[in-house]
Amino acid sequence: MERRYASHPNEVKQFDTDRLRQEFHIPTLFTADKLELVLTHEDRLIIGGAYPVKQDVKLETDLKELGVSFFLERREIGAINVGGPGTIIVDGTEYDLNTKDCLYVGMGSKEVIFRSKDADKPAKFYLNSAPAHKEFPTAKTTLGEADSSALGSIQNSNDRTIHRFIHADGIQSSQLVMGMTQLKTGNMWNTMPAHVHPRRMEAYMYFDLPEDSVVIHLMGEPTETRHIVMRNEEAVISPSWSIHSGVGTSNYTFIWGMAGDNKIYSDMDAVAMKDLR
Rank of each mutant, 00 (worst) to 15 (best):
E73G: 03
H227E: 12
I77N: 00
E221F: 07
N98C: 07
T185C: 02
P122V: 13
K121I: 07
D118C: 04
S7Q: 12
D212Y: 06
T28D: 13
W256H: 09
D91Y: 10
G179W: 01
P210N: 13
G86L: 00
F136C: 06
F70T: 01
E73I: 05
G260W: 00
K121D: 15
L20M: 12
D56W: 02
T40M: 14
G83P: 00
L37Y: 01
V112I: 15
D169K: 13
K58F: 10
S173E: 02
V112L: 03
S250D: 14
L151S: 10
G152I: 03
I216T: 13
A150T: 14
Y265D: 12
R231G: 12
V57Q: 00
F165D: 03
P198L: 10
S69V: 06
L72N: 01
G246A: 12
S238K: 10
H133C: 05
V90P: 01
E202P: 03
I162W: 01
D169N: 14
S213N: 13
L37W: 03
T31R: 15
T138D: 11
A139S: 14
E73A: 12
A119G: 04
R21I: 05
Q22K: 14
D91L: 07
I46P: 00
E76H: 11
A150Y: 12
A203G: 08
K134G: 01
K124C: 12
I77H: 01
L97D: 00
E135L: 04
H167T: 04
K54H: 11
Y51M: 09
K58A: 12
V82K: 02
A235Q: 06
M230A: 06
K58W: 03
A132G: 06
T138E: 07
F254Q: 00
N251I: 06
E202N: 09
D208W: 04
A150R: 14
A130C: 14
S129T: 07
K263N: 13
F165P: 01
E145F: 03
P210A: 15
G257Y: 01
S148E: 10
R199V: 06
M273N: 11
A146G: 09
P27R: 15
I154W: 07
V177Y: 00
V57T: 02
G92N: 08
T142Q: 07
L59T: 00
R44D: 15
Y204L: 06
R226T: 11
T31A: 14
N10S: 08
W256R: 03
T161C: 04
I171Q: 01
N232M: 09
C102Y: 03
A139T: 15
P52Y: 00
N158I: 07
N232S: 09
K117M: 13
G108W: 04
A130H: 08
V236Q: 06
A235Y: 02
P27D: 10
P52W: 01
D169C: 05
D275G: 08
V271F: 12
P27M: 11
D118G: 05
R164Q: 08
R200C: 04
I243V: 15
H244V: 12
Y265P: 00
Q22M: 08
D169L: 07
Q22G: 05
G186T: 06
D101C: 08
T249W: 11
D120F: 08
S153D: 13
S148M: 13
Y252W: 15
L20W: 05
Q172S: 10
E111M: 03
M1I: 06
Q172L: 11
T249N: 09
T253E: 04
K117C: 05
N128T: 10
T31F: 03
T223A: 11
T93P: 02
V229L: 13
K58M: 13
I80S: 01
H167R: 04
